[in-house]
């Protein structure tokens, strides 16, 4: 499949700190790509490089084969960038904010109005179009920013936290719109809200210290963890002695103690019976066993040790 975005050994430094370290990857046309990672992993910087807000210190970013630094204006025609916080002019109405950008891109006035109404209807902000942006809630501003970036019909949509500040219904509507656009447009986004990344279920890039630590679909990423289960056993009294005794069991991975609850990961459910054996005579109050999720994958200690 044809690549929409290609990065070749892209690096970004701030002072002597490496924000992005020699990233090389491609994004296929029409795909939906999530970038996740801890704070300061370099996610937003990567989006800013793709949008053209920042230039790489070394390496190249290609948008549909066009070098985004050498032919910035050509490459930017293909992209729409929605930042994390509002960048709307607070004194202009929502519609005026969107129309202005539409005019700047040279889009026909009628087309602009048609697109605004279509997307505003999808995202349920039709009644807010004439309100000054400064008086609109942050969630609705975010929707307006998404519409604004769709107004020139870019083939690549770059979004920093697509549903930040949004309530459940708005989040659903926004994802309905984005999923509808995927396939036709390449959508690359950063999100801290992992359940929505799991639901979107396309390609996921996990960033760690400016590098891509993991890359693949959710199923592929969790493949290595499928044998793992997360256990939570609540004791009536979990003493230090008992905790040390239990964590000495070799099949227990990444144990921790919160109050009287023992958390750990185990490759097989049978590990529970080993615990039972070691904790003979101790009263247990509750037990939870669940399969791992993206959140667990993001647990750096665990990821560092166990995701082989």
């Amino acid at each position: 499949m044809e690549a929409s975005i290609t990065l070749k050994k892209v690096g970004k430094l701030v002072g002597d700190k490496t924000i992005l370290a020699g990233l090389t990857f491609g994004v296929e046309r029409g795909s939906l790509v999530a970038i996740i990672g801890e704070n300061d992993a370099g996610k937003s910087t990567l989006l800013q490089l793709l949008a053209g807000i920042e230039n790489p210190d070394y390496g190249n970013v290609f948008i549909h084969g066009i070098d985004s630094v050498k032919r910035r204006k050509d490459s930017q025609r293909y992209t729409g960038y929605v930042p994390h916080s509002s960048d709307l002019d607070p004194e202009l109405s929502i519609e005026e904010n969107i129309r202005f950008i539409g005019y700047v891109y040279g889009i026909d006035g009628e087309k602009i109005i048609k697109r605004i109404h279509k997307y505003a209807k999808d995202l349920e902000i039709l009644d807010l179009l004439h309100k000054p942006a400064g008086l609109v809630s942050p969630g609705n501003k975010k929707k307006a920013m998404i519409i604004r970036e769709l107004i020139h019909d870019p083939s690549i949509l770059i979004i920093d936290e697509p549903t930040s500040f949004m309530d459940a219904s708005s989040t659903r509507k926004t994802w309905d719109l984005l999923r509808g656009l995927a396939g036709e447009k390449t959508i690359i986004y950063v999100s801290q809200y992992l359940p929505e990344v799991e639901q979107a279920n396309d390609r996921i890039l996990v960033m760690q210290n400016g590098k891509i630590a993991l890359d693949g679909t959710l199923d592929k990423l969790l493949e290595s963890t499928l044998q793992y289960h997360q256990f939570e056993i609540e004791f009536v009294k979990l003493t230090e002695e008992l905790y040390n005794k239990l964590t000495a069991i070799s099949t227990i991975v990444n144990p921790s103690k919160i109050g009287n609850t023992l958390h750990f990961y185990g490759r097989e459910r049978s590990v529970f019976f080993q615990i039972l054996n070691e904790a003979t005579g101790q009263l247990m109050k509750d037990l939870t066993v669940k399969k791992l999720s993206l959140r667990d994958l993001m647990d750096s200690k665990f990821a560092g040790r166990g995701l082989d």
């Binding site: 930017q76 025609r77 992209t79 891109y105 040279g106």
Partner: peptide, 14 residues
Amino acid sequence: ESQTLVTLSLSPLS
């Protein structure tokens, strides 16, 4: 404050 100028700088205008 509003970063609107940054967004405008991403448009096809020089």
